[in-house]
Each structure stands twice: as structure tokens, then as C-alpha cells.
Amino acid sequence: MRVVDCPGARLAQWGIVHDLRAVDGPWSGRYVPRSMLRIVINGESREVREGTTVADLVAQLGLRREHVAVELDREIVPRAEHEARVLQDGSTLEIVTFVGGG
């Protein structure tokens, strides 16, 4: 890992954090450790890494994308936008599918 002069990089070098994100754009050379976000999925609180997208989350949960529909803060996220939609701290999601019913 490239070590640059910023606190996050130092922490990474010492093995304290492993996941950094660039600040002030990708080429600034400044990094800080990624933090965790608290989100709510189907009524249950959960932690995810900062920068997680809807698509990442669906994959992390072991779900097939074509089997679920996702609502983020009560707004449907079309499947084509799953890759682009980044979760925020406090995001509330409903992830639904079809089950047997009459």
C-alpha cells in the first residue's frame, strides 16, 4: 500500500485500518480510513462500509439482484441504478421479493 502523509495512511501502514478512501478527489493523495455507516434493512439495524452501493449490499446479503426490489428511504431504486446509488448513514431500506400467496 502506498504510504502518504496523512493520518489515515499511517494507520493503514501500521495495520490498524485496511480500507481507505481518497478525499478531495481520487488524485489528491490524501486518504482517510473508511468509516462504517449504520443503516436499517427491513427494520433491522446493520453496519456497512462507507461507500457501499445498493448493488454491493444486495450482493453482500447473498441475494440475486433479479429476485429483489429495493426501496431506499421510501423511494424505489430501479435496478439499473443499483450500482450508482451509494448508501448514507441512516439510510433505511426495504428489500422485497415474491413469496407464495393467494
Binding site: 427491513n42 427494520g43 446479503l61 447473498g62 441475494l63 440475486r64 433479479e66 429476485h67 429483489v68 426490489a69 426495504e94 428489500i95 422485497v96 421479493t97 415474491f98 413469496v99 407464495g100 400467496g101 393467494g102
Partner: peptide, 30 residues
């Protein structure tokens, strides 16, 4: 055939959409 919409069950081993023959049956969500 009718189906219902519910929150995903993360512990469920198979999803209805993975075993129902959608070429044969039109799904009618309720």
C-alpha cells in the same frame, strides 16, 4: 398464479422466482 410481495427472508434457501416456471405461468402479484 398469484404471488405476494414481502421483505426478503435472508435465511430462506430458495426464492420462489428461482423455481417457478415463468414461461408457463403468468405471475399475478397481489
Amino acid at each position: 398464479v398469484t404471488v405476494a410481495l414481502r421483505r426478503v427472508d435472508l435465511s430462506a434457501k430458495d426464492n420462489l422466482l428461482s423455481w417457478i416456471d415463468r414461461d408457463r405461468y403468468t405471475l399475478l402479484p397481489n
